[in-house]
Amino acid sequence: MGAFTDKLLSICSDNISPNQPKKYIDSNHGQLLMSELAFVLEKKNGFYGFESALHLFPYESIGTEIGAIDWNKHDLWISEYKDMALGAFFFAEDIFGNQFCIKDDLIQIFDPEIGSFDKLAGNFEEWSKAILDDYSFLTGYSLANQWQNTYGKIPSMHRLIPKIPFVLGGEYTLENLYLSNSIDAMKFRASLALQIRNTPDGESISINTIN
């Protein structure tokens, strides 16, 4: 794959799943990148990195861990976004639940608060280099570290979610974060993303924030 991918894999956790993944993941989201993802999963079938800030899903679900195949099932959380999260294969997430995905033959970041995609890399070697070069920003490592020093280890399949959404001015501080199940977090913010899309500029929206 390349030196940057090998480096990233070497500093992250052991396999989440001890099982050998299938050689290819059937998908229409870009065969070359899906083949690269399959190669990564053959080397390490899911992992956590940067004190759990980076989470790459294993191929299949095991125990409390959801695998990439199940994570990408339409009715798990993707359908909550209506048409906003379609056409992508989601394979990893940062500490806040921002999703890394394969879409339009690129690796992109999906922002769950507004339902938007941003291009990040052309292949997994470029993605690995981007993570290594700016892991604090791209994974949320600093806040993951602060949270765990204060409150203890972040459980599997949980992310740190803002009480006041970042898009609405919420601060990147411990005081504005709470621990949430990953699926619940995506569903909650899907409602926010749809409201933001459907609300004219200058009008207010209604959300239930966490105290």
Rank of each mutant, 00 (worst) to 15 (best):
K43P: 06
F50K: 04
S27A: 14
S35V: 06
A53M: 03
G49R: 03
L33S: 03
F50G: 02
L37E: 07
S27W: 08
N28D: 12
H29C: 10
F47K: 04
V40G: 07
F39I: 10
N28P: 05
Y24T: 13
L32D: 14
Q31A: 14
N45L: 12
F50C: 04
M34W: 15
A53W: 01
F50L: 01
K43G: 00
F47S: 01
D26G: 14
N45C: 06
A38I: 05
G46E: 02
A38G: 15
N45W: 05
L56K: 09
D26S: 13
F39Y: 14
N45E: 03
F50W: 05
Q31E: 15
A38F: 09
Q31D: 12
K43L: 06
G30W: 04
F57M: 06
V40K: 07
F50H: 04
L54Q: 01
D26M: 15
L41P: 09
I25K: 10
A53I: 05
H55C: 08
N45K: 02
S35H: 12
E42D: 15
E36F: 02
G30Y: 10
H29W: 11
Y24L: 15
Y48R: 02
K43W: 00
E51M: 04
H55Y: 14
M34T: 13
G49I: 01
S27T: 05
G46V: 08
